[in-house]
């Protein structure tokens, strides 16, 4: 890799004297794209390292290649495609969307929904949510239930709960 005059000028403009950047980036955008890409592409030969972290010769080659592709004006996606065409989906740390990899995204989403549903069901109806005196309120309802002539002892608790909810609704109508 050569160090062009352009690179020295670029570096000097940032206040650096004598040390050149290893690569002559045309712009700061190009620099950040370069670092982003070498961090998300996997080195094909290494033990699970990205191109940035690996000292393997193939990683060095691919970094050089990536840099020249950027220089030639390839877009990020074109560079990813270039690498995948040669080394397979293996080199992408974020696998492309296919009918298999869909599971990677859908399963966590599904689990989140299911657990939300479970919590919703376990916490019961959001009754009394806005009522800070709910406890007090509910006990009043129970008294009401007993007064209505129902034998709570013989009832299943959840049936009682349902009944309370019903009474609560009528009670609100009364208000």
């Amino acid at each position: 890799m050569g160090f062009s005059l352009n690179a020295n000028a670029q570096v000097a403009a940032q206040g650096v004297s004598k040390s050149d950047e290893l690569r002559a980036f045309g712009s700061t955008t190009m620099r950040s794209r370069y670092y982003a890409l070498i961090n998300e592409l996997r080195c094909p030969k290494c033990q699970n390292q990205n191109l940035s972290d690996s000292d393997a010769p193939i990683a060095e080659d691919l970094r050089n290649e990536l840099f020249s592709l950027l220089d030639e004006g390839y877009s990020d996606q074109e560079i990813r495609d270039f690498m995948t065409a040669r080394y397979g989906t293996f080199v992408l740390y974020q696998p492309p969307l296919t009918r298999f990899t869909l599971a990677l995204w859908l399963v966590p989403l599904g689990l989140l929904l299911i657990s939300g549903l479970i919590i919703w069901r376990m916490t019961g109806k959001p009754r009394g949510l806005t009522d800070p005196n709910f406890e007090h309120h509910a006990s009043l309802q129970k008294v009401g239930a007993v007064n209505a002539g129902i034998e709570p002892i013989s009832m299943k608790v959840d049936a009682l709960d349902r009944h309370i909810a019903e009474l609560e609704r009528t009670h609100e109508h009364d208000k």
Binding site: E40, R42, N48, F90, Y93, Q94, P95, L104
Partner: peptide, 14 residues
């Protein structure tokens, strides 16, 4: 079914 890698971009996103 093929060779895939799942790494930082995936995990960070979720």
């Amino acid at each position: 079914l093929g060779s895939y890698s799942v790494g930082p971009p995936y995990f960070n996103k979720l």
